[in-house]
Design a protein around this nucleic acid. Structure first.
Lengths: 350, 350
DNA sequence: ACAGCTCTTGTTATCGGTAACATCCCGTGC
DNA sequence: GCACGGGATGTTACCGATAACAAGAGCTGT
């Protein structure tokens, strides 16, 4: 079998109605009113067993499926959520989205993921307008950036809408696992290896995650009495990590490069290699995220593992809480863990 | 600003009704019937200019927004599509999904992307059931695998549903760009460099893309009179590429490894390096996809570029065609291009 | 001046459910 | 024997839009 297929015609289903059955079809078949069917479907208990049985049989015979459109028209609430994310090929965002999607599904919601091309204002607006039209129960922004904040605030969704907290921060604004534990552990690791001067390749300054990581880096550097030779901003891509090293003309004397994600770390490693520097012999390099490929880079990358899926799930849980008005169980702190591989070693001459 | 935000309360909108305005509110305000409003909204021309103006003003004053739920209840068609994909962190699928999503949006549709965990039968079923309930105008499977085919056929979506063609094949079953041009070009490249024995690390055999690539590889090898020493199946991940080399205990004498995607190529490179073989000195390695990181691997990877976004767009175009019954303009053949980098060089002793 | 049209706009029914209220039936208590 | 109460089910209206049909206004031709 190669490509396509036919519209499944429910080959074995005995009934093959042109139009799907409604509760009225079921009601007629069972000899009851539509309301009785509706009640049974909603789990109402006060139905006589024999009635219940007749209706249940009719439901099956007609292969009844509720029309969610009609239902949400009357009840006024839909079972769909919107998720906005940046148009970017990155493991992080896409895993967050996957986690969010799975969590939504488990709660009976469908998650509409809309990737926004942040470089094009009109495309953002039209995308948001489209989202605002499809009545969603709530909207979630999965990437915390200034552009996203702005876009979100400029749109009236008329439903709960908010930006998910990064792994780098929690709702209360208190530093999170990654900032308080993960990145400090990374810097400690380098300090323990004798590195005294570091360089940071940060993410775009409009990203909250980038700012948080940079801040955590800086405070850890200060705490350990190290020196931060430079802080360059990339755009999360390997190419930008490569460019960052070029821009610095090397490492500016630093013996270690701390990139804000694994891709930029990869680019940095490549740039250093091209310049004739050995990693980790001359310069140690670290990333953040622990993407699946990181273990297979040459050299395998020392990084900090981040649980993206949990982040997505937490965001959806929070959104659902806001929608239903129930209290959200405190999100368990997201775990991050230092993963030491071969891209870091003792500082030269240490 | 850290994490969250408030539900936007349309701070500047003069009107702040509890409930959104309906066409009837607008009609009353403009002194016309609801139908007139409905007509205007649908672009009906026969409306007196002064009436039109009054209605238009009312629409603005009340910040009217159509209720798509109600609309699709009457018209019977929704403006949402469903997309099924595998739960997998891979650039390919995620870019296909992005392209599909963008194309859908441009056509005024929202694309619900559902990632299926193919290892868990019950989760597939519940996910598909959820999708089938939310009335979608059509459903698209973005990953062509046996599991997906099976799952799709077992579900009665009652709307057009089909599996998107891989880049590797087209609808007519004829080999596509990648199979007819991209992969052969890759093998030619290796043959021209003097390689005579190759190894192929294929994707999972349940994936149509994996089978197509393997077939294209084999026929190109035959055509050039080369020898395929081994064909091992991985799961698209770098780890599986690494494992494949381990399983072979090296390359089995081959001087080049053709991996079915870039991640597996990365894993293979790493495994070869660990075994003391130099890439490309001893063994040349190639990938497929040209993920953004491929240019920054050590060594930079020779690969075949694939236009995933176009693939997603084409799939959506096809689906929309089936839904509306219009003919789909023949999908322009997807481009693929050989990208030569440093992971390939002349065969040792050639 | 009046039938016959066209142009605009209004009425009514309907999509498939659900909420609120109405009704029917039957056993109880006095 | 009859009012009463509660369980089971039916009726009616409504959610917000659209389709199909109806109707009033104004113009034309004879």
């Amino acid at each position: 079998m190669t490509a396509s297929g036919q519209t499944p015609q429910s080959p074995d289903a005995a009934v093959s109605e042109a139009r799907p059955a409604t509760i009225y079809d079921v009601a007629r078949m069972a000899g009851v009113s539509g309301q009785t069917v509706s009640r049974l479907l909603k789990g109402y208990q006060g139905i006589r067993p024999e009635t219940r049985e007749r209706v249940t049989e009719a439901l099956e015979a007609l292969d009844y499926r509720p029309n969610l459109t009609a239902r949400s028209l009357t009840t006024g609430r839909s079972h769909r959520l919107g998720a906005l994310t940046h148009e970017i090929d990155q493991v992080g965002p896409s895993r967050i989205a996957q986690g969010a999607s799975a969590a939504a599904r488990e709660a009976g919601y469908l998650l509409d993921i809309v990737t926004l091309d942040m470089t094009d204002r009109t495309s953002i607006d039209s995308a948001l307008a489209l989202v605002a039209k499809h009545d969603l129960a709530g909207v979630l922004a999965l990437a915390s950036t200034d552009e996203m904040t702005e876009a979100l605030e400029a749109t009236d969704f008329r439903v709960p809408a908010f930006i998910a907290a990064e792994a780098d921060e929690d709702r209360s604004g208190a530093p999170s696992e990654l900032s308080s534990t993960g990145l400090p552990a990374l810097v400690d690791h380098l300090a323990d290896l004798g590195h005294r001067s570091l360089v940071h390749i940060a993410g775009p300054s409009t990203w909250a995650a980038a700012r948080n990581r940079a801040r955590a880096y800086e405070s850890a550097v200060a705490r350990r009495g190290l020196q931060s030779v430079a802080l360059v901003h990339g755009d999360w891509s390997a190419a930008s990590g490569y460019a960052a090293i070029g821009q610095l003309g090397g490492t500016g004397g630093a013996t270690a490069v701390v990139a804000a994600n694994d891709q930029m770390a990869l680019g940095a490693v490549r740039a250093l290699t091209v310049r004739g520097l050995s990693v980790p012999g001359d310069v140690s390099v670290t990333g953040v995220d622990d993407i699946p490929e990181a273990a297979f880079f040459t050299p395998p990358l020392t990084t900090v593992r981040v649980d993206f899926a949990a982040q997505g799930r937490a965001a959806v849980a929070e959104l659902l809480g806001r929608i239903t008005g129930t209290q959200v169980p405190a999100t368990p702190s997201l775990q991050s863990a230092l993963v030491v591989r071969e891209s870091t070693t003792r500082a030269p001459g240490a």
